[in-house]
Amino acid sequence: MRLVRHPVLCNYYVTYRCNAKCSFCDIWEKPSPYITLEDVAQNLRDLKRLGVSVVDFTGGEPLLHRQIHEFVGLAHDMGFITTLTTNCLLYPKYAEKLRGKVDMLHFSLDSSEKEVHDKGRGVACFDFVLESIRVARELGERPDVLFTVFRENLADLENVYRDITRPNKLVLILNPAFDYNGVDAGGQLTEAELDYLSDFGKRPGVYLNEAFIQLRRDGGNHVAAPVCRAASTTLVISPSNELVLPCYHLGEQKFPVQGRLFDLYNSAEVQQLAALEGRLPQCEGCTINCYMQPSFAVETSKYFWQALPSTLKYNWEKGTWKRMIFS
Rank of each mutant, 00 (worst) to 15 (best):
P7R: 02
N19T: 06
V135H: 03
R134N: 07
N43P: 04
Q214V: 05
P167H: 05
Y180S: 02
A230R: 09
T300C: 10
F24M: 11
E141H: 12
C25F: 10
D26W: 08
N289S: 06
V102F: 09
E70W: 05
P281S: 09
E317N: 12
R45A: 13
C22A: 13
P309L: 13
L276W: 03
E152M: 09
C286I: 01
A177S: 14
V223D: 03
D195V: 14
W28C: 11
P31H: 12
V52H: 00
Y265S: 02
T36C: 15
G140A: 05
M78N: 13
A124M: 08
L243E: 05
Y94V: 13
L174D: 11
G186V: 07
D46G: 02
G186K: 00
E96Q: 15
D195K: 14
C283V: 00
N19K: 10
N153F: 02
E131T: 09
E29K: 15
S267Q: 10
T320A: 11
V102Q: 04
G278P: 06
H249S: 12
L243P: 00
L197C: 10
K119C: 08
P62V: 13
R49T: 06
F150R: 05
F255C: 05
L264F: 07
Q271S: 11
Q306S: 15
A155I: 12
V298Y: 02
L146N: 09
T85M: 04
F107H: 00
P204C: 14
A185C: 10
L47A: 08
S327C: 15
C290V: 11
I27P: 01
L245T: 01
L139M: 07
H76C: 15
L174F: 10
I173Y: 03
E191A: 15
G51S: 06
H69K: 13
R166W: 13
L308W: 04
G60T: 05
P176C: 12
C18H: 09
G278H: 01
K114C: 11
Y303M: 06
E152V: 05
C247G: 07
Y180V: 00
L280C: 11
A136M: 02
Y180F: 08
E277W: 03
I68P: 05
S53Q: 14
K254Q: 13
G79F: 03
T83S: 14
V236S: 02
D56E: 07
Y196R: 13
I213G: 04
Y94L: 14
R49F: 02
E38I: 15
R142Y: 10
N266D: 12
H69N: 10
F147D: 04
I213F: 08
V129K: 04
Y34K: 12
M104P: 10
L90E: 00
L74D: 03
E38D: 15
V149I: 09
A136K: 01
E61T: 04
G201E: 08
R229E: 04
P176S: 10
E138K: 15
R137P: 07
S111F: 07
V171Q: 05
N181T: 03
D103N: 14
V160I: 07
V270M: 13
A230D: 06
A192D: 13
Y91I: 04
S232A: 00
G186F: 03
N209R: 05
K30W: 08
G79N: 12
L98N: 03
A75D: 11
R66Y: 09
K322L: 14
L130F: 01
L245P: 08
